[in-house]
Design a protein around this nucleic acid. Structure first.
Lengths: 252, 252
DNA sequence: CTAAAACCTCACGTTACGTGAGGTGCAATA
DNA sequence: TATTGCACCTCACGTAACGTGAGGTTTTAG
């Protein structure tokens, strides 16, 4: 954060020029989404060009339907550059236009049927309601996954490394369990700490992604990693790991 | 409310077919927006065709950006028929498409500048942020007024009658004030009751509209009505009327 | 210099549900 | 018929992204 202080804007000026409210900008500061570049000695917020660029990134990601927390997490990654998010936004707009044209045509047909002798059926109505009510600016779950995967594809080498570290972690967990170590012991908690760090890196700290990654590894990816190293998932290993994570969480 | 019970859907079925949630339909029932046609002896909600038609009206008005309360109040008026709201929705969609095309072009130009030697200015960014962040599904205040006026145009004769009644009310209020009647007396409260009924009729009970109508009559319409009948707004009349309304409100 | 506007932090409230608890009713199957 | 799983009921706390107002300090313009 920086920029020239003498060209910086105070919060009211930025709010006015962007059509946002001061309260919104306070809120963004509060949650660490958009931190002012400087503060005056009186504590007034000052925003320069870097912050305005970041606000454009925020705006574009918001327009894709991401929550503020998701936006913040995305912006932790280099692949969500200003250019990239603008590109994503354009793609999204084009999709929206297409879908709106379809919805317009659907409603035209519904009106025609409303004016016809046969009238409209309940099915006609529920179908139109569904499209209308779910015509949101948000991606479908599949598209959200795609958005995340897109980001994850970039660090292909790192991902490979991470998978190796995961398999080492699984092995270490398995050994600890075979040795009868308590999941709350320092040794096992160290493993939990390490896996938490890997998850954080992989997900940008997004608990939602972490949760679904947990599911993925549990059901498929984890089993794949184990199988790739000739290991079978011992009974109770996931539960054991869950206990270690819970113990680690209790510490903080 | 009604429809054949044997073709009616339970809440889960309706939710599934419309892509809504059971919770949403419960909520709509709770706030009187969408009441089931029937209930089974066990209390299960049953929705028939009339309810589904109403839900389509709700869906369309929601897509115009009205709050649930506003939707409910609109549906109290005959001019928001299914056909009419579908028509409004189509108009809105077309507007949205136009605006999205403009936004897409704006972002294209921003990206071009991002790639150019000169780069983007803070002004470029704030302008795009403004359009992106305020690209909502909601009407602007002017458009909302237009939506309301559109409904109000239909009952042109009735409106004429209402204006006559208002001028009679103003005259009666003026006489009561000249006679030195206390604003909290039964006579003046009867006038307040009558004006409250006129406002309710005119606004469908919408307190927001009532409030802004109050402002309109106070600043312009009211003076017009008075002037149309060769009356001048006596000093203190509005205040007097406000006191009568407050006294009436204290009774309830 | 003065008054109004802009700014600060704090904190309660809003809208439209999401989520879960505890219990009853309904439908399919053995 | 009995059982079990699913659908439904009401109740109620919680959420995201701010809106709104209070009480006080700082800045700006006349």
């Amino acid at each position: 954060m920086g920029g020239s202080v003498d060209t910086a804007m105070k919060v009211g000026a930025l709010a006015k020029r962007t059509g946002l409210t001061v309260r919104t900008l306070h809120h963004y500061d509060e949650i660490g989404l958009l931190t002012p570049g400087h503060r005056t000695t009186a504590g007034h917020r000052l925003y320069g060009e870097p912050e305005v660029r970041r606000l454009q990134q925020i705006a574009s990601l918001r327009s894709l339907g991401l929550s503020l927390e998701e936006v913040r997490d995305c912006l932790r990654r280099p692949m969500y550059s200003l250019d990239r998010v603008l590109e994503l936004q354009i793609e999204r707009i084009q999709e929206q236009i297409d879908r709106q044209e379809q919805l317009r045509d659907l409603i035209h047909r519904l009106r025609d049927r409303l004016h016809s002798a046969e009238g409209v059926s309940v099915d006609d109505l529920t179908r139109t309601i569904e499209v209308t009510m779910n015509f949101e600016k948000y991606y479908s779950p599949e598209q959200m996954d795609q958005l995340r995967q897109r980001g994850e594809t970039v660090g292909e080498e790192r991902i490979q490394k991470v998978q190796e570290e995961w398999s080492e972690l699984f092995a270490a967990y398995g050994k600890a369990m075979d040795d009868g170590l308590d999941p709350t012991s320092d040794t096992v908690k160290a493993l939990a700490r390490k896996s938490a760090a890997l998850i954080t890196e992989f997900t940008g700290g997004d608990p939602g992604i972490a949760s679904s990654l947990g599911n993925m590894y549990r059901s498929e990816g984890g089993a794949n990693v184990m199988a790739n190293h000739g290991l079978q998932s011992p009974p109770g290993l996931w539960e054991y790991m869950g206990k270690a994570s819970a113990a680690l969480r209790s510490d903080s």
